[in-house]
């Protein structure tokens, strides 16, 4: 039913995303779908990586490790957000389209990047995406 599943990851807080990551992996396995780990970074150095290139490498390594461990077709897709505090949701949506995802599995908040007063990322994505969105709480 699903061919490409996308799951946004924040490499700084992978430990807090366990539920979403496991859900996504199980679904990918069940439907034989490709699983994309989608990670957003800034152009400026962050706690995860000094450059977008380094970030891409880390995300690819993460995807490769998960893919081998879970026995699924896991890929990485990194995106650079110029102003993630504002643009992250829109940038994610654009990336889901680029990889032709037909299902998004995401935690209600991506911890760390935007866990504050304003609405949750998943809430916004669910109401704006044209594809199915699985919000993990």
């Amino acid at each position: 039913m699903y061919k490409v599943i996308a799951v946004p990851v924040d490499l700084a807080h992978v430990d807090r995303l366990t539920k979403a990551l496991e859900t996504a992996a199980d679904l990918a396995k069940a439907y034989g779908a490709t699983l994309y780990y989608v990670g957003a970074t800034t152009e400026t150095p962050s706690s995860v990586a000094h450059t977008p290139k380094e970030f891409k490498g880390k995300l690819e390594q993460f995807a490769a490790e998960r893919g081998t461990a879970l026995g699924i077709d896991a890929r990485a897709r990194s995106l650079v957000s110029l102003d993630p505090a504002v643009d992250l949701d829109r940038d994610l949506l654009k990336t889901f389209k680029e990889i032709d995802a037909d299902l998004v599995v995401m935690a209600s908040h991506i911890p760390g990047i935007k866990e504050h007063l304003i609405s949750s990322n998943a809430g916004w994505i669910a109401s704006h995406a044209k594809i199915s969105v699985f919000v993990v709480r």
Partner: peptide
């Protein structure tokens, strides 16, 4: 501290 993704608040 140089973070460009600090909360909008």
């Amino acid at each position: 501290g140089g973070k460009t993704d600090a909360p909008v608040a």
